[in-house]
Design a protein around this nucleic acid. Structure first.
Length: 250
DNA sequence: TCTGGGGTCCTAGGACCC
DNA sequence: TCTGGGGTCCTAGGACCC
């Protein structure tokens, strides 16, 4: 099983002998008995299609996509139904006259790569054909640890900003300690009142888990992103401040 | 959706090294 | 004094997911 967030998971049932819809029925029953909640299930040859299938009939649904009918099922769908296609890509594709998965599948690979880059273009090319070889990931190591906080009101007080950042650093450092991680790169994120968001990063010479070291790097980074006036104010009002440590090592 | 929090991955430019 | 090409690391920003 691969966890896919708080209320979603992928399950490899390829080794089972009973018909897949029977397995799905058992899962639905169990979940309902234990939680009183319904769920939607998609069954398909790969994760991409299973995710689409699970989305097709929403409350309490069960949808099966098979190899030989996958094109018929996904071609009419809006591109937005594909995992990895968000509002920006949807709008971009619309401008190109592409609205459905089937229309996307008609686009040449070279064209998609030219517009969306090699990696993502290649992904779209395969996804539009229902092709996905990605394996189940049953265990993974975190790549970063972060905390962020939106102020109740946009603020202009440097002290409050600094105090909040120090608190976020403390929380992240504590979590890292608990999980046994150190980190090499420290990133401070600042979102202004107009929602413009900047990040400022600082890489350490070597990974550290020390709250003092992380805090010092955090303040150095923040200082590059925002200046305080002589009166201890910051100019564009700040809505959010965040702190992340990445490039983790054990 | 007038916009919360914790993540991942990708791209692009610049620095630096051989 | 000027110049190639490749590789790696760092930084900043953006798109996307649940």
């Amino acid at each position: 099983m691969e966890d896919a967030g708080i209320d979603e998971a992928f399950l490899d049932i390829s080794g089972r002998t009973e018909p897949p819809d029977e397995t799905a029925g058992k899962i639905k029953d169990l979940i309902f008995r234990k939680t009183g909640l319904t769920c939607s299930i998609g069954i398909a040859p790969n994760k991409l299609l299973a995710k689409i299938a699970s989305d097709l009939r929403k409350p309490d649904g069960l949808t099966i996509i098979e190899k030989n009918n996958k094109a018929a099922v996904i071609n009419p769908l809006p591109v937005r139904k594909l995992w990895g296609v968000g509002p920006k890509t949807e709008a971009h594709l619309k401008e190109m006259g592409i609205n459905t998965v089937g229309e996307l599948a008609d686009a040449p690979l070279e064209k998609l790569m030219e517009v969306f880059g090699r990696s993502y273009g290649g992904y779209l090319y395969n996804a539009s054909r229902g092709i996905d070889e990605s394996p189940l990931v049953t265990h993974w190591e975190p790549k970063s640890v972060s905390r962020e906080m939106t102020f109740e009101k946009d603020i202009n007080d440097w002290q409050e900003l600094a105090k909040t950042l120090a608190g976020l650093v403390r929380e992240v450092a504590s979590e890292m300690k608990g999980e046994g991680y150190k980190g090499k790169t420290v990133t401070v994120k600042i979102r202004f009142a107009d929602f413009k968001t900047i990040t400022r990063a600082k890489s350490l010479d070597e990974p550290s888990g020390s709250p003092e070291v992380l805090r010092k790097a955090a303040f150095e980074a923040m200082g590059r992103g925002i200046k305080q006036t002589r009166k201890g104010k910051v100019y564009p009002l700040v809505r959010l401040i965040g702190f992340r440590v990445s490039n983790l090592a054990s």
